[in-house]
């Protein structure tokens, strides 16, 4: 083999093995859990680290919003329809915040309760006129539809 070809061979081998190593590393990483975002179920099962800033996503459970009339303090439960997590928060809530609304709360776990430093409403990708919503609600299909979307 002449030196020029040998050189080319080495370069191609080097590139292929480099890409191979990279693919291997990525495969290994993806086989592990690398999330910073948790569901209420994971929190209840204790899979989320305590003391560290994490995010929890889910729906505001119906009938759990508890506002303190004297201050901006509010408590509610976030649910993924399997488990609930109690969240306490002090501050102004976004307009879209309501029962049954998807939210993302950021904060820390403190003695079984989630102390939020930020509450963000997560609006879904469904856009529809109010009359359609009303019709769906009457026929009971809205909850079903949103439920399907969320899972």
């Amino acid at each position: 083999m002449n030196p020029k070809r040998k050189q080319r061979l080495f370069i191609i081998l080097g590139m292929v093995s480099g890409l191979g190593i990279a693919v291997g590393l990525v495969m290994y990483a993806l086989s592990q859990n690398i999330n910073l975002f948790f569901t209420p179920t994971q929190i209840v099962k204790g899979e989320a680290p305590s003391a560290q800033m994490i995010r929890v996503g889910g729906m505001v459970a119906d009938g759990t919003v508890d506002r303190d009339p004297q201050s901006l303090r509010v408590a509610f439960e976030v649910t993924d329809f399997d488990h609930n997590v109690r969240v306490s928060y002090e501050g102004i809530l976004p307009d879209l915040f309501r029962e049954g609304q998807g939210v993302v709360v950021q904060g820390r776990i403190n003695e079984g309760q989630f102390v939020a430093s930020e509450v963000l409403a997560k609006h879904d990708e469904n856009y529809m006129p109010p009359e359609v919503t009303e019709a769906l609600r009457q026929s009971g299909k809205l909850d079903q539809m949103i439920g399907v979307q969320k899972q």
């Binding site: 910073l36 997560k122 856009y127």
Partner: peptide
């Protein structure tokens, strides 16, 4: 995306039925 996601998924996709009514 792994780091942080809040944005809703796309409403219009080429492959799927849009999640909004035709008038929208």
């Amino acid at each position: 995306e792994w780091w942080n996601t809040l944005h809703q998924p796309a409403s219009l996709k080429l492959t799927e039925k849009p999640t909004m009514p035709a008038s929208m």
